[in-house]
Amino acid sequence: MDALELLLGRRSVGKLSAPAPEGKVLENIIRAGLRAPDHGGLTPWRFVIAQGSGLNKLATILSQAAIANQSEEAVVEKMRHAPFRAPMVITVIAKVTEHPKVPAIEQHISAGCAVQAMQMAAVAQGFQGFWRSGNIMFDANVHQAFGLSGEDQIVGFLYLGTPNFEPMKALERKLGDFVEYL
């Protein structure tokens, strides 16, 4: 698959099985994330990989946050089961450094670019993934569990694994609906 085909065919696959990426393949995925745009060379990324028993730890973090927020039992259960939709979940964190020329938003966007690059690197090597977000990313209890402070922010949970089926083709969109010229 060439690079343009990879980018134009990008699709999320919401249910993934083992195996997860490992070894050199996983290293390539992380290295792709480290190539995200990085104004000022601040390296504003942190990647926390959960697999095996780590998925149980992530489930505990998410469900305990839901309990602390007095969420309905259905939400608590959803958080308890969420990490198990794939054999690996990488929590991608924007680790913000105060800088006079690089505001926090740029560092958050950089970490977001890292997620995209990592997902594309996974697909390029025969795996699949999906990027999850939601209110739980902003939860103070979750931030505490991951050691976040200041303007640090979780930008997403990247689920990685092997698809159980052939992903549907990406939806075609009309360029004119999104593009303007000055």
Score class of each variant (00 low, 15 high):
W131L: 08
Q64P: 01
L171I: 15
S63W: 01
G112T: 14
A50N: 03
E72N: 13
F138Y: 09
L8S: 15
I67D: 14
L26K: 00
K78R: 11
F157G: 05
W131V: 01
I136T: 03
M88H: 04
G41K: 03
G112E: 11
G156Y: 04
E98V: 08
N164K: 11
Q70S: 13
K174F: 07
A65P: 05
S17E: 14
A145S: 07
P37L: 04
W131N: 10
T97F: 05
K174A: 11
A170D: 15
V25D: 06
Y159Q: 04
P44S: 01
N135S: 13
R31W: 10
Q64S: 13
P19F: 02
R173C: 10
G54A: 06
V115M: 01
D38N: 07
G176R: 15
V25W: 12
F47C: 07
E27I: 05
K24V: 12
L148E: 07
V89P: 01
L26D: 02
S12Q: 12
T91D: 00
R85H: 05
Q116C: 14
M118K: 05
Q128H: 15
I30Y: 06
D38L: 04
G40P: 09
K24H: 13
L160C: 13
A104W: 01
R85C: 07
I30N: 00
V25C: 03
G9N: 12
G52E: 06
S133D: 03
I61E: 02
H108K: 10
E72S: 08
S133F: 04
F47I: 01
P163Y: 05
A111H: 08
A124C: 00
R31D: 13
R35T: 08
P21K: 00
S53I: 09
E166G: 14
N28M: 15
D177Y: 00
H81A: 14
C113A: 11
R35M: 03
A36M: 02
G134C: 09
G40Q: 06
N28E: 13
A121L: 08
N135M: 15
Q128G: 10
S149M: 12
G52D: 00
V76P: 09
A114S: 11
E72H: 14
A117I: 14
E77I: 13
Q119K: 12
E180S: 15
G33S: 07
G40L: 02
E72F: 11
F138W: 04
T162E: 04
F130I: 04
M168Y: 15
E77W: 12
P19Q: 06
A104I: 02
V123D: 08
I67N: 09
W45I: 08
G41W: 09
G129A: 09
A68Y: 01
Q51W: 08
M79Q: 06
L4Y: 14
G134A: 02
K95D: 08
I67F: 06
Q119H: 12
Y159W: 10
M118N: 05
R35V: 10
K15Q: 12
N69K: 02
P19K: 03
E98W: 00
A66L: 02
D38M: 04
E106S: 08
M168H: 15
L55F: 00
A59S: 02
A94P: 08
K78S: 10
E77T: 15
T162R: 14
G134Y: 10
